[in-house]
Design a protein around this nucleic acid. Structure first.
Lengths: 416, 416
DNA sequence: AGATTAAATTTGGAGAGCAAAAGAAAGCGG
DNA sequence: CCGCTTTCTTTTGCTCTCCAAATTTAATCT
């Protein structure tokens, strides 16, 4: 059942509203915050005074000589998130590679690094320590005291367990069930989460456009792997254990092509780069390659298809069809109002796009399809880190700064 | 973004908490409500006094001569939902058949009727009126003034559109897009919703056991059709338009068996009674039968399978396999912590159950399956109406009675 | 009958938001 | 140049909420 409500909850909620408005709209005057949140000027004044006294936001310092604004009335004083209020650390783990990004409370990047770190052959018990070492080295180089970090978020390909903070299964690791969050929390004394990379991209989408992606959206990403993030009422849906939206490993054809996960017939085994390539060369039964397929290979294959190569065309059509059936199954279960497709594959191959739409028409009744907007979005690798940062900042807003500190409230009351 | 919070929201939330506690635990004393809701005795007193003055709840009237309770201290005064606070009307539409149930605010049935009403050949424009006529007749017979009804809920097989309140597609109707809610709202001046029957059963499950079904649960119902209801954080998930969880019409095999919906390869075309029967007789390409398969037919088929009939065994195994692959796909997308299976098919056929589990093992990696509890629940036809009533009452609690009427508050303040 | 126990209510206070009034800081206009 | 207007912000006074603590109520126990 829901929580009981009291005045503390009211304050928490309204502080969150103010922080959210500032995050979404950038520097804003108090009147503007009033409009955005629906709160009265009086309440906005009180809440902002408290947030300022806590160092979470600050008034914009105007230049000494104010230029004529051309507007009458008392000039607005814009408020902005205080960059130094918190630091967050976003980590993206790929095969034998780690990207670490440090941002301030506004989400501006302070420093970033990408380093080689063995993952595939890393032992279950040692990886967390190795990652912590790498992060510690990065922080030391940046002269940042670990304690100053407020949250750490780790994005991975594959299955994450949000409860235990571990990597359940990932193509980047030979072993499974690798604990990560606990090791980082121990080392740095900071809460840490582990999540699927596609879910993090979805976090980024919500942050970028709350209106567009605020309903029920399924965002599907194709490339070397296939991932999905599901947004329900503006919140990324993680499922019971954090493994929701495993679109890539949803079965497409019983006893079908072998997938990296060891099962047969997964969507990924048809739609991912390596799947398309395998179907072209005709070796679908073999284990998938470990290393990524070079982009040039896929571009080349695409050109062959365009030139009329029958085998290449068949491979792309098979991929498009699998994707279409997969999307159809997602529509049947989730009834989304929007499907976002991102990934190099679709953008380059009309063949695949067409096969996808045909499969959708064949497998889903029109009445279920008719209200779903399907759109393509440009994908960049940076979206994963970006989304992880967005998720981290949202967590801090909600779990840390929305909660009023009694000291600040009292201090404010004492010498108003 | 979320709503702003104020004292009115606090009251609303806490009143809802009290109503919810009374609904779930039945008659309870004020102390008990305090324990259940986490509210202080003082607040409980105030809230209950207001709810009583509004006629929503009432104190239990004790017998004139109180028997010795054996307990010291001031005796508890139990509070209970006032049955007469509201009336709700739950309607279940099947092929050429309508069930109407009138219940009080506690959910106790006041009257019920089941009448023949042509649906399959009903015109799109006339059905709403015809249904309204039938309801009006029922209410007249019960001497209930339509205005006394607070909400109407209509459960249907097939696709409902919650926004327009219409039946988008249903096996009970030849035509599609049949408006229903609007006609009833016009006639009776009462808000009305239209929803899928499986979603209503899911509502019933949540009401019956909030703890068990409070996480992410997918409840799948097999029988003449195949349906699913998805529960996320204790709320039934309806999707963008109210058509979520269309498990039965999710594709299983591309270009597979013909389904009632006109597409090929839907789960239902393999798992529903008529699907199993067709596969036994070998006529999977034909249009599905309109009328329901008699239970005796399925029991007979089951016995044949047990006796070793190869074709019967194959039909059940095919059904179980389709169900297993379907469940696997649901697990991949939703990552539920619980799957509930209900329906005569599974309970009677171990063959089907076994094939289902084998398909699940073949199509979903162990790490995704391991945390999902799969349980069987006895299904009764009454669950649909029961769940619709539960949904209606929850709506009334939240949207009507949780909102404090200013008059009542003032009246209370005026003469203590 | 008085003591004990437990439920419910009353009282007084704190914190929240809001409407209305007041204050602050700019441009405008004679 | 100085008052007027405009607009943003703060202050004031009020109401609403919940809660802790004290009080009242109504039973049993001794």
């Amino acid at each position: 059942m829901a929580e009981k409500a009291d005045s503390e909850l009211v304050r928490r909620q309204n502080r969150l509203l103010v922080l959210g408005a500032l995050r979404q709209h950038g520097a804003s005057a108090r009147v503007e915050l009033g409009r955005l949140t629906g709160l009265s000027p009086a309440s906005i004044t009180t809440i902002c005074a408290q947030l300022i006294s806590e160092g979470i936001i600050s008034e914009e310092s105007l230049p000494v000589i104010t230029p004529p604004s051309g507007k009458r009335g008392r000039p607005t004083v814009r408020l902005l998130l205080n960059p130094g209020a918190a630091l967050v650390l976003a980590v993206k783990i790929s095969i034998d590679d780690v990207m670490i990004v440090l941002t301030d409370f506004r989400g501006e990047t302070i420093a970033r690094t990408e380093v080689r770190l063995p993952t595939y052959d890393a032992g279950r018990d040692l990886f967390g320590m190795a990652l912590a070492d790498e992060i510690a080295r990065f922080l030391a180089a940046q002269r940042v005291v670990p304690r100053k970090i407020s949250r750490i978020g780790v994005a991975i390909q594959g299955l994450a367990d949000s409860r235990s903070g571990s990597i359940v299964w990932s193509p980047a690791f030979k072993e499974g069930d690798i604990p990560v969050a606990h090791a980082l929390e121990e080392r740095f004394g900071v809460p840490c989460f582990v999540a699927n990379d596609a879910n993090m991209i979805a976090e980024g989408l919500v942050s970028a456009d709350r209106v567009r992606y605020g309903g029920v959206t399924a965002a599907i990403f194709t490339g070397y792997g296939v991932g999905m993030g599901v947004i329900i009422n503006g919140e990324v849906f993680h499922g019971a254990t954090g493994a929701a939206a495993e679109f890539g490993h949803m079965n497409h054809i019983p006893d079908g092509a072998l997938c990296r996960c060891g099962k047969r017939g997964c969507v990924e085994a048809y739609v991912a780069d390596y799947g398309i390539l395998r179907h072209y060369t005709g070796e679908t039964g073999r284990e998938a390659p470990r290393s990524a397929v070079p982009e040039s290979t896929m571009t080349g294959l695409n050109q062959k298809a365009k030139a009329g190569d029958v085998k290449a065309r068949a491979a792309f059509e098979l991929a498009g069809s699998a994707l279409g059936y997969g999307i159809g199954r997602v529509i049947s279960i989730l009834n989304p109002d929007r499907i976002v497709l991102a990934g190099p594959g679709l953008q380059t191959s009309e063949l695949m796009d067409q096969a996808m739409r045909e499969a959708l028409e064949k497998s889903v009744v029109e009445v279920l399809r008719r209200d779903v907007a399907i759109e393509q979005v440009r994908f960049s690798d940076d979206m994963i880190i970006r989304g992880t940062v967005d998720a981290l900042l949202r967590i801090i807003d909600r779990d840390v700064f929305a909660i009023a500190t009694p000291q600040a409230a009292q201090a404010l009351a004492a010498h108003g």
